[in-house]
Nucleic acid binder design. Sequence first.
DNA 1: GGAAAACATTTTAGGCTTAAAGCAATTTGG
DNA 2: CCAAATTGCTTTAAGCCTAAAATGTTTTCC
Lengths: 163, 163
Amino acid sequence: MLDSETKAVETPEDHAEELRLWLRLLTCTTLIEGEVRGRLRQRFDVTLPRFDLMAQLDKAPDGMTLSDVSKRMMVSNGNVTGLVERLVESGHLDRRTSETDRRVQVIRLTKLGRAEFRRMALEHETWIADLFADLTPKDVRELMRLLAKTKASAQKSAARRRS
Amino acid sequence: MLDSETKAVETPEDHAEELRLWLRLLTCTTLIEGEVRGRLRQRFDVTLPRFDLMAQLDKAPDGMTLSDVSKRMMVSNGNVTGLVERLVESGHLDRRTSETDRRVQVIRLTKLGRAEFRRMALEHETWIADLFADLTPKDVRELMRLLAKTKASAQKSAARRRS
DNA sequence: GGAAAACATTTTAGGCTTAAAGCAATTTGG
DNA sequence: CCAAATTGCTTTAAGCCTAAAATGTTTTCC
């Protein structure tokens, strides 16, 4: 049997498996994301980022600040500014400056925005179910568990770098 | 015990688990992708799409057509056109029209492009390994299996829609 | 109280991305 | 052979996205 040192010499840094895993993860996400994007556009003439932003706001009846949205969506501040601008323009969002802190903008879904989002979300959920249809409930549970572990690992690594 | 019909009435369409799974998948990918993007920029002043394109070409010593690249990267044709333009400009790519079919553009890494990519890829691999560091080899295998199943399921669903 | 730091957002410059339309070259099927 | 369809790529218009700098506001802390 090989000791660990010998093995280390033979395969100095074998991270090929992790690399393949990352590529597969990326492929899955890209595939599903593209499918959802296309369906949103065809059925509702809406973009995925707009839908995602509305989804965040649907969960927050009292509204959110732009920073909150930016953190939740994991996108840059400037990105949110533009996205919100367009959704206010189209009447889906209401935006007001906080009374207690004039730096802060609070945004909410308008009645129109909420109604449209709910209508889209119902159908969206069936698309997702269909895309994952071949996974058993056990597969789903197991994937949830492993992705939670993955997320924690990646966050730890990211924090290590920032420190 | 409830029969399936009663149960169906109580929970008409329970796809909440799949939805959560999709969001978690997306979170993991966004997290890792953002981390890789930032490191590529800081260490090598290169963008992620440029790196991805070079990675495709590194696996194809005889070059690829733009269509091939577009399919592999799962992005639109027009996207590749611009990406290639900039990489030819910076001297990383060589582009020539096919002798047998004048519609086709074949691109390859230049000597410079290959050298730079190899240098980046070495480090990139260690980042990925670090990001996935808390997963056991068994976790990795299991994730690979479940993501393969997910990919197949999503492709089937996408094909259903297109038909 | 007031300077300095922190914070929320916007602006800027540049690049990425898509869908759809357009152009040229090749292939197909009468 | 040649018109029609297909294929490979580019262009266009619009929107998405980031990092970094700028602006205005609030908090901190001496």
